[in-house]
């Protein structure tokens, strides 16, 4: 039971950072809209928007990497994987996390820290705009995101080990899923009759279920 608590704690950390970074999309959207007005209506485009857009987008996806991993939402080639028994899935995952995942993410932390430190040392600025904004903060995102993903990777390795032992994938924290919208839409529908709606909700759950098992490597804690 303790192991599950460790897993949830790590999932929680990844999710917290991921959800915090997720809001950058709203800032990005706002910045883009303001610039559209400035560029096309006021004929006064801003040069550093290029840097800012890049930094918002780059930070967003890097910091959400661990969150996505915690939700098992990184796409898998699941033609064979989905039909394997959980123990087989776990065995493969365990080996591949050590062989494929750890070296690259370790590089992000270890070489990424150097890369960012060099940038801080020379107070590196963007070469894209006049008096470009500093880029050392942005480069620091690399080791930070690497550390978060590595932490989540440890949780995934533990999950695989637990599954190898018990034959069952440990559960994950619940989070919003793509298919949630189906129930929401159906719940408010005025034009779908009750019978269809009942069948539809059942089918939606089924589809959801299938989607989760397909390469999910662990059910969601619903």
């Amino acid at each position: 039971m303790n192991v599950q608590r460790v897993l949830y704690t790590i999932d929680g950390i990844s999710t917290w950072f991921g959800k915090a970074a997720a809001w950058l999309i709203m800032i990005l959207m706002t910045v883009v809209c303001v610039e559209v007005v400035k560029r096309y209506l006021l004929n006064a485009p801003t040069a550093w928007i290029f840097d800012l857009d890049n930094m918002l987008y780059g930070t967003l996806f890097m910091l959400c990497g661990a969150y996505t991993l915690a939700q098992n939402a990184h796409v898998r080639g699941d033609f064979l994987y989905s039909s394997m028994r959980p123990r087989m899935q776990a065995a493969l995952d365990l080996v591949l996390y050590v062989v494929f995942f750890v070296p690259g993410i370790a590089a992000l932390i270890y070489a990424g820290a150097d890369y960012a430190a060099d940038s801080w040392r020379i107070a590196e600025h963007s070469n894209v705009t006049s008096n470009g904004p500093p880029v050392y903060h942005f480069k620091t995102v690399i080791p930070v995101a690497g550390a978060l993903v590595m932490l989540q990777g440890v949780a995934e390795i533990i999950r695989a080990a637990v599954c190898l032992k018990t034959g069952e994938w440990p559960s994950r924290l619940h989070d919003v899923a793509e298919t949630d919208v189906i129930e929401e839409q159906l719940a408010h529908s005025e034009y779908v009759d009750d019978e269809s709606r009942k069948i539809a909700i059942e089918r939606a759950k089924e589809i959801d279920e299938v989607a989760r098992q397909r390469g999910m490597g662990g059910d969601l804690n619903t």
């Binding site: 990184h74 994987y81 899935q89 494929f100 070296p103 690259g104």
Partner: peptide, 21 residues
């Protein structure tokens, strides 16, 4: 390797690291 069902992003990264090494 992609058929082994590991997240594709990390599969590509892993192959890159291995052969790059």
């Amino acid at each position: 390797v992609i058929m082994m069902g590991f997240p594709t992003a990390f599969t590509l990264m892993g192959l890159g690291m291995f052969f790059g090494f």
